[in-house]
Design a protein around this nucleic acid. Structure first.
Length: 135
DNA sequence: GCCAACGTTGGC
DNA sequence: GCCAACGTTGGC
């Protein structure tokens, strides 16, 4: 099982939007590094849902429920998307500030390369973020 | 193939 | 709104 972190601007698509839909295509990713990570995702993998720009915090966990398939919003046929479902909303979001200040998270791919919209997490990083969300 | 110009992302 | 990081485009 692998762990991931995926970003979305909440005014475009928030964790609550995902809860409401029950399942969604994670589309619109147009970056090769991010695409590579999505291709490596397998059913049952877990991902942190992160709100960029507004909130700037990790807000919950989602599960990968559908592996790489053509992105329905892409007409070129070059890009893929995965399907995700909500798993657990954090009681207390974990802010970027908190993550940046935590030495256990200093090597997080997203912190080292802030613009990467889909990034891998180690199991330890994932568990630590979940722990932080419980206060 | 190099690199400058430009566009986008995302934190602050 | 500003700016840094980074990706893409296009001239040469």
């Amino acid at each position: 099982m692998n762990y991931w972190l995926m970003k979305s601007e909440p005014d475009a698509f928030s964790y609550d939007d995902l809860v409401e839909k029950g399942r969604a295509e994670w589309d619109g990713v147009r970056n090769h590094a991010a695409q590579g990570h999505m291709r490596a995702m397998r059913k049952g993998d877990l991902s942190i849902f992160y709100h960029s720009n507004i909130g700037v915090e990790a807000v919950g966990i989602m599960e990968i429920v559908g592996e790489a398939a053509p992105d329905s919003t892409d007409e070129t046929g070059k890009w893929i998307a995965v399907h995700v479902a909500p798993k657990e909303k954090f009681e207390k979001p974990v802010t970027l500030k908190t993550m940046k200040a935590d030495p256990k998270l200093a090597d997080m791919a997203m912190i080292r390369q802030s613009r990467l919209s889909v990034s891998p997490l180690t199991a330890a990083e994932f568990r630590h973020i979940v722990d932080l969300s419980k206060g």
